[in-house]
Design a protein around this nucleic acid. Structure first.
Lengths: 214, 214
DNA sequence: ACTTTTGTTAACTATATGGTTAAACCAAGT
DNA sequence: ACTTGGTTTAACCATATAGTTAACAAAAGT
């Protein structure tokens, strides 16, 4: 009787926390994002989720498909962050300030996502088609036009909007993607590095504005 | 007789090209840098080198050690490029112009090296110790002092030299490390992307100088 | 109550893969 | 000619790993 009751409680609690399918996805995210497709082991994901390995196949059929679910979810977290800068109506300066601030906050909370996506896209460029077909895939047209217009109106110095876009995302993302390397080069510890990243929210924006504003 | 002679010719030619040990290292570079430690297969490296798999272990003992040789070689190609900007005596402006130009040329020739090093350092932060012990490991002290001095002398606007350094390497390296993603976002083909990278040698330098010079 | 569907488990399978070995090969020294 | 030491090969081994299965358990219909 006690065991039955305990069983029910355990079931109820874990069901409340998350059902098995979610548990698997969460565990798979944790493992895949840290170790990549090749470095991840199905058994390790099962252990992380605290369930039997067969359940992975029961819910997701194969490693490839489970990986695909993780990849798509990661990208659909990243994409809206990019769209934010591209598709609102504030001035370029405001956009850049908001973007640097929001994006660095976002990456600080999900430090593995950008490098995960970049790594896997490098190893498997076919995934590009997969993400490009997503309706939320970021589109640069509006941003390009806006930059051109502000250049015409002498608000900005002449600059190629594609180069500007690359500069912005490079400075926001790279220090996270390459953090072990950059930490080593700067010779700072994790805590100081975090402080540098926090300061960067404003530093980057000022730097870019100084570079482009007349 | 004919076969013996042919054998000799073949041996002579391949020996002239490169000995077995070099052939292995070259093949290992090609495979490891594209697929990473986890994605690489010893058999694939042997095939690429056109030799028997046992030779890999004969010359390099284990996958780990072969990988280590590739990693160290890659980093010792990358490091001098960084030292160049840090340890000569020209002004910050000149340094930045030279660095953007040289570094982008370098990466264009070895496009896999930065992402390889960054990826593997992410998966195995212990390697940081390995590369930091290298006597050629880049040191930022001189660069930091020089920036501080030029700020004092009102040549540069007030800026944190670590942030500046991150900005420089981010803009130079990121578009290569994340090239499939950036190509997709900008919606450009490989050829146009190459042109963008070529233009970047000057664009980046101008951008940074505009940002920091009084 | 009982049947069916869904979820879960331990044990198993097939294969891929890093690594080993013993025999063969070959060039150089004697 | 023959010995020796480094080099190369095919076959082999042990293990790790993705995926399967068959039996069991629980829930949900009926």
């Amino acid at each position: 009787m006690l065991t039955i009751w305990l069983n029910q409680v355990v079931r109820y609690m874990s069901a409340k926390d998350q059902n098995t399918e979610k548990k698997i996805l969460n565990a798979a995210e944790s493992i895949f994002q840290r170790k990549g497709m090749d470095g991840a082991r199905m058994q390790e994901i099962a252990d992380e989720a605290g369930i039997n390995k067969a359940m992975l196949h029961y819910y997701y059929k194969s490693k490839q498909l489970l990986f695909g679910a993780v990849f798509i979810k990661a990208f659909s977290l990243l994409a809206p962050q990019l769209n934010a800068i591209l598709n609102d109506d504030s001035t370029i300066e405001i956009k850049i300030r908001n973007f640097a601030n929001n994006y660095i906050s976002f990456i600080s909370k999900h430090p593995y996502i950008p490098s995960f996506i970049i790594m896997e896209l490098n190893k498997n460029p076919d995934f590009v088609l997969k993400i490009k077909s997503n309706p939320n895939f970021p589109n640069l047209k509006k941003f390009n036009k806006q930059v051109e217009k502000e250049v015409e109106n002498k608000i900005l110095k002449p600059i190629n909007s594609q180069q500007l876009f690359m500069n912005i995302i490079s400075m926001c993302i790279f220090p996270f993607v390459a953090s072990p390397l950059v930490k080593a080069l700067l010779d700072v510890n994790d805590k100081d590095y975090q402080l540098l990243m926090e300061a960067r929210k404003i530093e980057i924006a000022n730097f870019i504005i100084d570079a482009i504003k007349i």
